[in-house]
Amino acid sequence: MNLAKFARRGYVTAPTPLEFLPNFSRALGAGVSVYMKRDDMLPGAGGGNKTRKLDFCVADALNKGCDTLITCGAVQSNHCRLTLSWAVHEGMDCHLVLEERVPDSYNPEASGNNFLFQLMGVKNITVAQKGTDMMAAMQKVADKLSAEGKKPYIIPGGASNALGSLGYVSCMEEIMAQVFHIGLKIDHMVVPSGSAGTHGGIIAGMIGNNIDIPVTGIGVNRPKLVQEQAVLTVANASLELIGVDVRVLAEKVVAFDDYVGPGYSLPTDSMVEAVKMLAQTEAVLLDPVYSGKAMAGLIDLARKGYFPKGSNVLFLHTGGSPALYAYLPTFRQGK
């Protein structure tokens, strides 16, 4: 695969660490060794996986002469935070459309990413009700800005289109170079699965490079079959964009929905356990929406024997820890 033919802004200046978690692995007590790909340490205000995707998307926007970024997400969206941060870096305006996936959940005075939106000078926030056609809502904002003489560029939620997902095709190549360098055999990979671009990009990267490592996605919002189809669609769109003739088979895509709990972004006991466990064994901060629920899935699956004893399991940490500060009551209960 030749990713060099696609324009990037160079936001990812060095590989993120790939670390063994010895204390966590011991505390887990499941006979597996857990490693972590630290994409929480990517550049951008607060870090996180969307920087890899925006590296490609913002380059496309600038190449098209755009001066404004428009994107969408939930009310505490890490993707929106990072899109805004790179817009600021590039001297571009940024407009956000936030979906209240939990009714009445948007609070402009909230901490976490809501605070960072204001701190970094977001131009405007439009709040949409749950179930809104978010592409249509963003297009409405774009039409208004175009009429005012601006040149807007719409980035879909999570930057999860074929172009954005190239960030995780590239990440998979980066991971394989790292494990080769240190002489590590990875037996299984666990990834958060939300807007599908990260999960889909990882799978596309494996298919395109003839890598046969099982990948388990831990869904954070949609039913299993819906999520798996979304991941499959993005993965194949990425391979088509790159020019790889092979396509992903449906059976290669696994995205459990057992750890979503009562709904997207709503706390679960297993998420709280996972966040506290990582903080207290490795001083690693997970977020309550994506990496926290994904790690809850890894913990439960490991305890149930899903990974054979002696396995090396790699967890992709997608970042998002600034959102923790919007969940203080959740973590302070029952201290």
Rank of each mutant, 00 (worst) to 15 (best):
L54T: 01
G319L: 03
L54I: 07
E100L: 08
L116Y: 09
K276Q: 13
A235Q: 10
T330Q: 10
A136N: 12
V141S: 05
E228D: 00
G297W: 04
V246T: 15
E173V: 11
S146P: 09
K5P: 03
P322G: 07
L98K: 10
Y35P: 02
K304M: 11
S33E: 14
A255G: 05
L241D: 04
A59I: 01
H181C: 13
I182P: 09
I213K: 05
N312W: 11
G112W: 11
I202S: 06
L84Y: 04
L298E: 04
T233M: 10
V127A: 11
I207G: 03
I70G: 00
Q129K: 15
H79P: 02
N209I: 10
A159C: 08
V313P: 00
M206R: 12
I218D: 00
V215L: 01
I207Y: 07
V248W: 01
G29R: 03
Q227Y: 04
M135R: 13
A302V: 04
L328P: 01
E109P: 04
N78Q: 11
D40Y: 02
Q229F: 07
S170A: 15
Y35R: 04
L286C: 06
A59N: 01
S85L: 07
E240T: 14
R52K: 00
G167M: 04
H181D: 15
I155A: 07
D60Q: 11
V32D: 06
P214D: 00
V275A: 06
V231M: 02
D55E: 07
M189V: 13
P322I: 06
Q139A: 13
F20K: 15
Y259T: 01
L301E: 10
C72D: 11
G73P: 05
T281G: 06
V58Y: 08
E228V: 00
Q280L: 15
N124R: 15
I182A: 12
L278M: 13
S33H: 14
A177N: 15
L42G: 00
A162D: 09
D143W: 07
Q139L: 14
N78M: 08
N78W: 10
G131L: 06
L69G: 02
M41S: 12
M172V: 07
G73T: 10
A159V: 06
T233D: 15
D212M: 05
H317N: 05
D143V: 11
M138V: 08
G91D: 04
N236I: 07
